[in-house]
């Protein structure tokens, strides 16, 4: 009796296991098949996605020759570059303040810092738009940059804080013991050691900025079209292989940046010497 029971249970487990495997594969297919199709069809010689007509790089070439697209890329890089720079500096300062000092309202400030990560993009977008109208700021690249800084600071601060949490305070004391004043200690010891975290945070900010759509859509004005906005307006006229090519390229860049960011956050244990 006992043996039969065990055997039956084992059979049941293997049946459940197989189902779970199939389920897992289906899940991954659901997630990644569209991406694979997108990339594959960016090399399709046919203008229509209905059939495969052979391999070509034409769409990448025509994409690179598109003037409007080039200006969108330029705008995107300006926005991503400047918002990353600003939010990295401020985000690092916030992280240092939160990790090192005690001050009144620190708990509230801590919660507020996470808010931009948590609240829906659309709420933040409407909020920022209303703010810009109230402040009588003309919508354009500047307002997009301000908006991106607003959400990126939080992401940078979170990443840098994670690095600071493991910082050995006796290293700063050792520097001061060896005649380095507060500034020298910061530049020579603290900053190099948290640099991997800062770079990781910066890359993350850059990635988030490059492909932000909702907030950018609400806070952009004439002449400040970024890449995601441009793609959206192109798609409204029908999906062409150029868009496939463009999306594939963005996918590649985003993935590379995220990988680099994760690598920096994980490794770089020794820190990076600046001087």
């Amino acid at each position: 009796m006992k043996t039969i029971g065990v055997r039956r249970e084992r059979r049941k487990t293997s049946w459940v296991g197989r189902l779970l495997t199939v389920h897992g594969i289906a899940g991954y297919l659901f997630l990644y098949l569209p991406i694979v199709v997108l990339v594959v069809f960016s090399f399709n010689a046919s203008r229509y996605a209905s059939a495969w007509r052979g391999f070509t790089l034409d769409w990448y070439v025509s994409m690179l020759q598109d003037q409007a697209l080039a200006s969108a890329v330029k705008n995107t890089l300006i926005v991503a570059g400047s918002s990353t720079l600003i939010s990295t500096v401020f985000g690092t300062m916030v992280a240092l303040a939160m990790e090192r000092y005690r001050f009144r309202g620190k708990l509230a400030f801590d919660a507020l810092l996470y808010l931009p990560i948590i609240i829906p993009d659309i709420a933040m977008a409407v909020m920022l738009l209303l703010f810009f109208i109230l402040a009588r700021l003309r919508l354009g690249l500047v307002t997009i940059i301000i908006s991106h800084v607003a959400f990126n600071i939080s992401f940078v601060a979170v990443v840098v804080r994670a690095r600071l949490a493991y910082f050995d305070m006796s290293l700063e004391e050792a520097a001061q013991d060896l005649y380095a004043d507060e500034w020298q200690t910061f530049w020579r010891v603290t900053l190099p050691l948290i640099m991997p975290g800062i770079l990781g945070g910066a890359l993350m900010a850059f990635t988030l900025s490059i492909d932000d759509f909702v907030i950018t859509f609400f806070t952009s004005g004439p002449g400040s079209t970024t890449l995601p906005l441009r793609i959206y307006s192109l798609v409204k006229l029908g999906v062409t292989p150029e868009i496939n090519a463009l999306s594939s390229l963005m996918l590649l860049i985003s993935m590379a940046l995220v990988m680099l960011s994760l690598l920096l956050q994980k490794g770089g244990g020794g820190g990076i010497e600046i001087v």
Partner: peptide, 19 residues
């Protein structure tokens, strides 16, 4: 401040600069 005192310290965990 410590950086103006004519003393030097050997720390318990050595506190060598890893970078």
């Amino acid at each position: 401040p410590p950086y103006r005192r004519p003393v030097n310290t050997v720390f318990q965990n050595y506190a060598l600069f890893p970078h």
